[in-house]
């Protein structure tokens, strides 16, 4: 191992992010006096498009923002929000387990959904359709129990609504992401 290239130098990185993604990230630069402030927007941009933020993307983001990859990885790992190993399911379900939902049987329904999907809470179905993640208060407590599926809140959940959701997911044709 004689090369001494730092992993974030240009020569090391094969372009991993698309031009579209890079342009979306660059569009955030003028908003802040520091490049580092673009870390979270950049992570969201990649995560929204690819469903995860693999290490290659971390390295390229770091290079764009003139940071060490460890700085980006440090921030990323704090939030427990950006999967790194494989994309999350096409339906990303955040199921609320905080007090207002729990006292209206939210956690019972979360377990019911997990059972119907044949996974544990925290996992993704084998076909990559659904990720079921426990969430703390989603801020929709007046509609408890609730879950957030991608950008849509499912309110006042019941077993019947969970059944209907699972049917809908099964019927959905799976195309390419985003």
């Amino acid at each position: 191992m004689s090369t001494t290239l730092a992993p974030h130098t240009d020569a090391f990185v094969k372009r991993y992010l698309s031009e579209e993604i890079r342009a979306a990230i660059e569009a955030f630069y003028p908003r802040y006096p520091s490049r580092r402030a673009v870390v979270l927007p950049a992570l969201h941009i990649v995560n929204e498009r690819l469903g995860y933020v693999p290490i290659e993307a971390v390295i390229e983001i770091a290079q764009m923002l003139e940071l060490a990859p460890a700085q980006v990885q440090d921030t990323l790992s704090f939030y427990h929000f950006f999967p790194q190993d494989k994309p999350s399911g096409k339906f990303k379900v955040w199921f609320c387990r905080s007090l207002s939902c729990s006292c209206r049987e939210g956690e019972v329904l979360m377990d019911y959904l997990a059972e119907k999907l044949g996974i544990h809470v925290g996992e993704t179905t084998a076909d990559g359709r659904v990720s079921l993640l426990p969430a703390e208060c989603l801020g929709v407590c007046e509609f408890a129990p609730a879950m957030l599926v991608n950008d849509t809140v499912h309110k006042d959940l019941t077993k019947e609504k969970i059944d209907a959701f699972v049917e809908m997911v099964k019927a959905e044709k799976l195309g390419a992401r985003g």
Binding site: V39, L40, H44, L65, F78, Y79, F81, A135
Partner: peptide, 29 residues
């Protein structure tokens, strides 16, 4: 005046005002 939206990433402590500031700066909150 310019007004920009900055989105968090699912951590309650980002609501604490200096956690919010650190998070905005691109660091752990």
């Amino acid at each position: 005046l310019d007004l920009f939206i900055h989105r968090g990433a699912g951590a309650y402590v980002c609501g604490e005002e200096t956690g919010l500031i650190e998070s905005l700066e691109g660091k752990r909150a």
